[in-house]
Design a protein around this nucleic acid. Structure first.
Length: 594
RNA sequence: UACCCCGUGGUGUAACGGUAACACAGCGCCCUUUGGAGGCGUUAUUCAUGGUUCGAAUCCAUGCGGGGUAGCCA
């Protein structure tokens, strides 16, 4: 019997949570409000999972809210398919943990105008744990386009923004040189007029921009009059053809945080140099306090994989994997299909911590976290991946025994099940060696091994085909050695798994391995040249009959082999299992030494 | 090149001016009807130099190393 609190790992501590805790203690914020703001231009990956666990973790631990927000200000790259997958993956990851802290909004809802002090202001509050009868959706930066435009006008009127006529190339050069451009000192009226005409669609793409007027000689590039709006005559997945000018990240992101009442805006390190601009925007507009503050942490890197959305998209588009949710992908949907649970991903996120050091996490940490949970929870089953036939010559042909097998030795409440035993069996090909090396204690000619839950058998005869390939083993069982019996105490060194041949059911087993052969595939050269050619092996497994009732919710340990999860490709009578992760195999290490 | 950030065992993190610790990985042993799990043990750490201090991983300076930014991407 476990209580919910026991299911949750102890809340971690890090420099960002320290700040939040201090802000709560000082009364700076009444309610903590974070946000998870992905751009819908790809699927979420395990790096996003780190960000989700951080942002939702903070909301959860401090009784606050975390908004899911589509940062959709670039119509050229974004699609609804991604919006849908992002929400689904996020919900899956926080399910049963931080559902109550998920901030969404009623479908179609946009900000309300309120009076903040003497000035009009815009707010959009989150509803958490929305009632099922109302339709909800994630927040969208594109829902604030009207407000953004109002704020842009405010900046222009204050003389803090101007319409710039330079080409992209000129803009780059002037910024590099720290030189002021010719349009910089236009009158406010002219800027207002030009901005209105930009919005009205009078100019082609790229003809003009709206720029913040800050300081072209600032040491920080992002303070050298950054672009706030650009002209893009493009249809937007959420706002259609309403706009032909679109706000840039810094402008939209900062004000989205403000509009949603975000208290702690947590992002990755590459935005660190943008923080002065974030603060400048908030300070330059007349906004009600308290204002949000930005904090940065290091993004996740893991060995033997790649993490950037661009590279993941290449793998998909080049057909190197079967889709965004291919179980070899580090995407949330891929890891889920692989059989990793949301709770183990959360544990992983807690284990790796939050710092500003650009680290490379050993994939072994992820694998360990997954094994740790699966060892506690997975149902044990007998299945043979690479079968070889065994005939128990002294066992009657028509006899079948139902043997009792333990479902989970780590959890007695998981109970037991019956497994049929008969004269003809399959065992794992690797569990027999004709001329074994030292320290090999499985089956060999003349040798003995225990069949788990059954008898000790002795290999009498090795049957080979014309090509000298071993195709069958003839063995005799010590009928007195049956597991659980009064004379079952005989010890032999090895115990192997098996499946009764006439009772076995076939299942497709997809044996996944690391996608890349090197720890840092994107360190140098073309990452695609390091693809592991053996990242997927498909075999027909011989499974104990109880696996017929396998369900996608459960995880299975095929004893002595690996953890498996049912794949969505499964159909009645045609099971497909994905290998989530192998058991740690110390024999493999022993064998490797020789 | 300029600006910003970061340097603690092999890897990832903790220690918040007071005995450098935890996890993973590695190695060894024990146990085992999963060569799994578990138990026990073990190897190995503050980038460098100087300064402040009774005392520095922690504060300061310089150097070195790594990362980020320099899109009308986010």
């Amino acid at each position: 019997m476990t209580t919910p609190s026991e299911n949750e790992p102890a809340a971690p501590s890090d420099f960002i949570r320290d700040v939040v805790a201090a802000d709560v203690k000082s009364g700076k914020h009444v309610e903590i409000h974070t946000r998870f703001p992905p751009e819908p231009n790809g699927y979420l990956h395990i790096g996003h999972a780190k960000a989700i666990c951080l942002n939702f973790g903070i909301a959860h631990e401090f009784g606050g809210v975390c908004n899911v927000r589509m940062d959709d200000t670039n119509p050229a790259k974004e699609e609804v398919e991604y919006v849908d997958s992002i929400l689904a993956d996020t919900k899956w990851l926080i399910n049963g943990w931080a559902d109550d802290n998920l901030g969404l909004k009623p479908t179609g809802k946009t900000p309300d105008t309120e009076l903040a002090g003497e000035k009009p202001d815009f707010h959009l509050s989150a509803i958490r744990n929305p009632k099922s009868e109302i339709s909800v959706e994630p927040f969208h930066a594109s829902d604030y386009f009207d407000q953004f435009y109002e704020y842009a006008l405010q900046l222009v009127r204050k003389g803090k923004a101007y319409v710039c006529d330079m080409t992209p190339e000129e803009t780059d050069e002037y910024r590099r040189l720290g030189k002021e451009g010719p349009s910089r000192n236009r009158s406010i009226d002219e800027n207002l007029d030009l901005l209105a005409r930009m919005k009205a669609g009078e100019f082609p793409d790229g003809a003009r921009t709206l720029r913040a007027k800050i300081d072209m000689s600032a040491p920080n590039i992002w303070l050298r009059d950054p672009v706030l709006y650009r002209i893009r005559h493009a249809e937007h997945h959420h706002t259609g053809n309403k706009w032909c000018i679109y706000p840039m990240y810094d402008f939209a992101h900062t004000l989205s945080d403000y509009i949603e009442g975000i208290t702690h805006s947590v992002c990755t390190l590459e935005f660190e140099v943008h923080r002065p601009l974030y603060d400048w925007l908030l300070a330059s507009l007349d906004l009600a306090h308290p204002l949000p503050h930005q904090y940065e942490f290091a993004r996740l890197n893991i060995t033997y994989t790649v993490m950037s959305k661009r590279k993941l998209m290449q793998l998909v588009n080049d057909g190197l994997v079967k889709g965004w949710d291919d179980p070899r992908m580090p995407t949330i949907s891929g890891l889920r299909r692989r059989g990793m649970t949301a709770s183990s991903l959360r544990s992983f996120a807690y284990n790796i911590g939050i710092t500003k050091y650009p680290s490379m996490t050993d994939v072994a940490v992820l694998e360990h976290t997954v094994r740790e949970e699966l060892n506690r929870t997975a149902q044990r089953r007998l299945a043979v991946l690479h079968p070889i036939k065994v005939v128990i010559t002294n066992y009657p042909e028509d006899r079948v025994e139902e043997l009792e097998a333990v479902n989970n030795p780590e959890d007695p409440s998981a109970g037991t099940r019956k497994v049929p035993f008969s004269r003809e069996l399959f065992i794992e090909n690797a569990d027999f060696m004709e001329t074994p090396p030292p320290k090999y204690f499985r089956l060999r000619p003349g040798g003995e091994v225990r069949l788990k839950y059954a008898y000790i058998i002795k290999c009498d005869e090795v049957v080979k085909d014309d090509a000298s390939k071993v195709i069958e083993l003839h063995c005799t069982a010590d009928l007195e050695s049956k597991s659980g019996g009064s004379t079952s105490n005989r010890k032999v060194k090895g115990t192997i798994h098996w499946v009764s041949a006439p009772h076995a059911i076939d299942a497709e087993a997809r044996l996944y391995d690391r996608l890349f052969t090197v720890p840092e595939p994107d360190a140098d050269g073309d990452f695609k040249s390091f693809i592991n050619p053996n990242s997927l092996e498909v075999v027909t497994a011989k499974c104990e009959p109880s696996l017929e009732g396998a369900v996608p919710e459960l995880r299975y340990q095929f004893e002595r082999l690996a953890y498996f999860a049912l794949d969505p490709d499964s159909r009645p009578g045609r099971l497909v299992f994905n290998r989530t992760i192998t058991l740690k195999d110390t024999w493999a290490k022993e064998a490797k030494k020789r």
